[in-house]
Design a protein around this nucleic acid. Structure first.
Length: 937
RNA sequence: GCUGAAGUGGUGGAAUUGGUAGACACGUUGGACUUAAAAUCCAAUGGCCUGUAAGGCCGUGCGGGUUCAAGUCCCGCCUUCAGUACCA
């Protein structure tokens, strides 16, 4: 019987499932290790070969860690709320739950075929009410919390109420809305219940706020920035307007600094850390308050250069700034109005596109310089963004290129406040070489000293203070969608009320259509049974709303990132109905040790998850404040599209090598028809699609060759390759090895099915090594020295490679080992058993089969082996210093435990060494296993 | 513009982190076995020079430098990809 991978793989997959081989226990005997993949969104298209890449890598590591003696948690689940299922529902009327269930079944089937060691007993689905009960619970916890800046952590809201009752809010140092008014204890106690709720809402970690959104009236929905193209919706091309809506927001800004600091404590890729750092966007400087002349108003600005305060010659407000209408003089009214309207019409994308055009309008109003008391003209300009800082800047044209350009364009003064610097052509922005001049008390100071002094003086006159500004904004948490977690919220007199945990989950109601309502409410506005009976604590028909016992429920749903922000913790105790997870479970597993997933989640999921983890940590729910110790971003697998060349205006196709003799156009064809030498059999193409039925072909050397192009794997380019097909044809072990063999895990790399024959024949050779014809053939004889050398070389390299996540090179190492052992005709058990263990994380099915044939009754998959623990057979590698010619030395690194004499004999017996040493007195000879590298001397 | 990563044969990619560049695999060429194909096995395969071999020269994006020794380190460029963008 030759290597029958189909039967072997089916058998072992069945065995693993039946014996629940990979179910993790909360076992305290062994050290724990938690390996996690980013769970997939189950899309209708199923998996292509790019998807399992990270799962294969994490699976190899998980299996390796089991061999190392760890108790491994390696779960999988589904991020099953999301837009595609909802869109499909809108088109077909099919309930998203049905679509989702079907897609999950298909995903599971595909995943099972690859032989992952997932603990499926812990599967979670974010769209499962048993799961989202806890998403709702965390939302409530956030609602019931505020951020105490003094303690630098989140605290329960009842603490805050207690403080208010006792002393008002004068001493409260909290992260909150800008517009909280000061009040005393008497004031607080005098507030009505509703007034109290309104105040508290400004402090809660999740709060309701008016937020500007992109509203598309025709589609009746809110669009994300990237769903808008040229000011109209991407889908349908309808106009989009900025609209204020009341939405739930998450006060992630409270955690900006801790999210930044935490990055130093985790082993994540530098590029990913950098993009989170940029996203949080910390900048240090000062806020400065300018009084507006002739108005009871002030303009607050943020600047990173308070040292340049005497260089201010104008101010610029964002066109959306709230003061614009108030301070504009009547002469300028018309022009300002026109500019504001023009800006409002332009999409953000448009504004970004032409950053070079300078535009702006003078408001006619003046501010007063805090020190010189000189008038400073106030302009508006769209280079100032409403969403960053305060939406206003103090313009220092001599020190900032944008201010400089603006001033030049509108012929505003450009006072020079730098010593010995020419600013006739451009601004001078070099902080390091700055010496301030023409600046009163700042004259002669460097950037650092001037900054300090300026802040000190500003604080003295009460018109500014040192400040750290973050780009990170609070995250909008409401979506006008159906297929998401419902909020556990109902409204009494317009104020949000949380439903008690005991009555969760609040399940999604049924609706007859998944579109927004005609009046612009979210799809849940169509539900007829969607009101909260606060007396009997249950969801009841809307008809019963009486505003004394029965109230309307929230109509928005949560965004996609809600469920994915804590799911990794839920795996630790997924079936718990009383708690999100038990203390025992969370204290045992603590955090993810290795997390593998795509880098596209850098500023989304991975930031929000860190935020929630820190919040849960503050509230004592989890024991650590970073959820993933180590993270690896796997690179994307790209498709290699196949291109045929059609002679223009005909149905004749010409082979690639001779296409330049004709006028041709390119067509992409199914990549699965192409063989390893880029050859296409014309008959296959003719039967592929009707348009090729009568095609004619011009061949070169009797072959039809296609062009290749590397691009994203997509149905559109006919370059999608399915893992199931590969598993059937070559086996899951071949697929696993090949995905790893393609290249470094972190790198993007093209898929080309043709190359899989290399790893496939490795597996066949491995099989043959243990078999003589159909007979299993392994001896108990002692192995030769060469075979031992091969083994130890392999052990060393493979272990190093796994620890470094260089899975690609270890596959090569296996191939070399098998080739060498085959050449040595080695079928000694002493070598083959450890080799099987080494291979098993990569190709688990064949390893299990061989392990069983070697006479072991237990599965190889969960056993710990000392070869991964220590080099117990022979000390595998060692550096040996050798004296030579009395005084010179060289080091030798060999894979065998040789004596000094043996090494010298080996080295001196080496032809090449002899040659290299001939007639020379070497200082050093560098030798690595089996070969001489270099001689110096 | 800024930040980050990377440029090595026909292709994917190795290189013990300063030590024989091109491991391993694909592809290609030749051979063995076959009536034939598939499968399998063997050999060759960076470029150039020499009829062959022996041998030599050139070779890791480009130009310099450090070193006995540079794909690897330093300086200056070029190119590609990814993220981000009027961030005050």
């Amino acid at each position: 019987m030759s290597y029958d991978f189909n039967t072997i793989e089916a058998n072992w997959q069945k065995y693993w499932a039946e014996k629940a081989t990979f179910n993790a226990e909360n076992n305290r005997e062994k050290p724990k290790y938690y390996v996690l993949d980013m769970f997939p969104y189950p899309s209708g298209a199923g998996l292509h070969v790019g998807h399992p890449l990270g799962y294969i890598a994490s699976d190899i590591y998980a299996r390796y860690k089991r061999h190392k003696g760890f108790n491994v948690l390696h779960p999988q689940g589904y991020d099953s709320f999301g837009l595609p299922a909802e869109q499909y529902a809108i088109q077909t009327g099919q309930h998203p739950a049905i679509t989702t269930r079907e897609n999950i079944a298909r995903y599971r089937e595909q995943l099972d075929k690859i032989g992952f060691s997932f603990d499926w007993s812990r599967e979670v689905k974010t769209s499962d009410p048993k799961f989202y009960k806890w998403t709702q619970w965390i939302f409530i916890e956030l609602f019931n919390s505020w951020y105490d800046k003094d303690a630098d952590k989140a605290r329960v809201i009842t603490d805050l109420e207690a403080i208010f009752t006792k002393e008002g809010n004068a001493n409260v140092n909290a992260v909150c809305d800008e517009d909280v008014e000061p009040f005393t204890a008497e004031g607080w106690n005098g507030f009505s219940s509703k007034e109290k709720q309104e105040v508290l809402l400004k402090y809660r970690l999740t709060y309701l706020a008016e937020t500007e959104v992109n509203w598309c009236p025709q589609l009746g929905t809110v669009l994300a920035n990237d769903e808008i193209v040229n000011g109209v919706s991407e889908r349908g091309g309808y106009p989009v307007v900025r609209k204020k809506m009341t939405q739930w927001s998450m006060r992630i800004s409270a955690y900006a600094q801790r999210l930044l600091d935490g990055l130093d404590t985790i082993d994540w890729p530098q590029p990913l850390k950098d993009s989170q750092t940029n996203w949080i966007g910390r900048s240090q400087g000062a806020s400065v308050t300018f009084n507006v002349k002739d108005h009871e108003a002030t303009i607050e600005v943020f600047t990173t250069r308070p040292d340049t305060i005497f260089g201010v010659s104008f101010m610029t407000l964002a066109p959306e700034h709230e003061l614009v209408q108030k301070i504009t003089t009547s002469e300028q009214k018309e022009e300002v109005q026109a500019y504001v309207e023009a800006t409002a019409k332009r999409s953000e994308r448009e504004r970004m596109a032409d950053v070079k055009t300078i535009s702006g309008v003078f408001t006619g109003a003046y501010a007063e310089h805090p020190f010189t008391k000189e008038p400073v003209p106030i302009w508006i300009g769209d280079y100032v963004l409403a969403g960053y800082g305060t939406g206003a800047v103090m313009a220092v044209p001599c020190g900032d290129q944008r201010d400089y350009d603006f001033a030049k364009y509108f012929e505003i003064d450009i006072p020079n406040i730098f010593e010995g610097v020419d600013i006739s052509e451009e601004a001078f922005a070099d902080k390091e070489n700055t010496i301030i001049a023409n600046s009163d008390f700042l004259n002669g100071l460097s950037y650092k000293k001037a900054t300090k002094t300026a802040i000190f003086e500003l604080e003295k006159i009460g018109q500014g203070e040192g400040k750290i500004n973050y780009r990170l904004r609070d995250a909008v948490f409401s979506r006008q969608r159906y297929w998401g977690e419902p909020f556990p919220v109902y409204y009494v007199d317009g104020m949000p009320q949380m439903i008690d945990v005991a009555h969760l989950p609040i399940a999604l109601p049924e609706v007859e259509k998944y579109l927004p309502t005609e009046t612009g409410e979210p799809p849940l506005g169509r539900a007829t049974v969607w009101a909260w009976d606060a007396k009997n604590n249950k969801v009841v028909s809307n008809d019963l709303i009486d505003d004394t016992n029965v109230f309307p429920l929230e109509l928005n749903t949560m965004p996609g990132w809600a469920g994915s922000s804590y799911y990794f913790n839920r795996y630790m105790d997924p079936h718990n109905v009383d708690e999100v997870f038990s203390k025992e479970a969370i204290n045992y597993w603590k955090e993810v040790d290795l997390y593998i997933g795509g880098s596209e989640h850098a500023t989304g999921h991975l930031l929000y998850a860190r935020f929630w983890q820190k919040f849960l940590f503050d509230r004592g729910v989890v024991p650590v404040d970073e959820f993933a110790k180590k993270l690896i971003n796997q690179g994307m697998i790209l498709g290699t599209s196949a291109i045929v060349y059609r002679i223009s205006g005909s149905n004749t196709y010409v082979s690639k090598g001779i296409k330049d003799e004709y006028e041709t156009e390119e067509l992409r064809v199914d990549v699965n028809m192409i063989n390893a030498s880029d050859e296409l059999i014309p008959e296959e193409l003719m039967s592929w699609q009707p348009q090729f039925k009568d095609a004619e072909f011009i061949l070169e050397d009797g072959k039809f060759i296609v062009g290749r192009e590397v691009e994203k794997m997509s149905k559109r380019w006919y370059n999608v390759v399915n893992p199931d097909g590969i598993c059937e044809q070559y086996g899951a072990d071949s697929l696993r090895l090949y995905e790893m063999f393609l290249g470094p895990l972190e790198q993007a790399k093209p898929w080309n099915t043709a190359g899989i024959t290399g790893v496939h024949s490795f597996l066949k050779k491995l099989w043959k090594l243990y078999h003589n014809g159909d007979v299993f053939d392994v001896t108990d004889e002692a192995p030769t020295k060469d075979s031992l050398k091969t083994l130890h070389k392999t052990i060393k390299k493979v272990e190093e490679d796994i620890e470094n996540f260089s899975f690609n090179t270890s596959v090569s190492t296996f191939m070399i080992a098998v080739n060498e052992l085959t050449a040595q005709k080695c079928n000694s058990r002493v070598i083959l058993e450890p080799l099987t263990i080494l291979v098993s994380p990569y190709a688990p099915h064949i390893a299990e089969e061989l392990w069983q044939k070697l006479g072991h009754s237990e599965s190889i998959a969960t056993e710990a082996f000392p070869i991964f623990e220590e080099k117990h057979l022979v000390e595998s590698t060692k550096q040996y210093p050798i004296s030579f010619n009395g005084k010179t030395r060289f080091t030798l690194e060999l894979s065998l435990d040789l004596s000094k004499d043996e090494i010298e004999a080996e080295v001196m017996g080496h032809e090449k060494t002899k040659q290299q040493l001939d007639g020379r007195t070497p200082k050093k000879v560098i030798v690595v296993p089996g070969k001489i590298v270099n001689v110096v001397g």
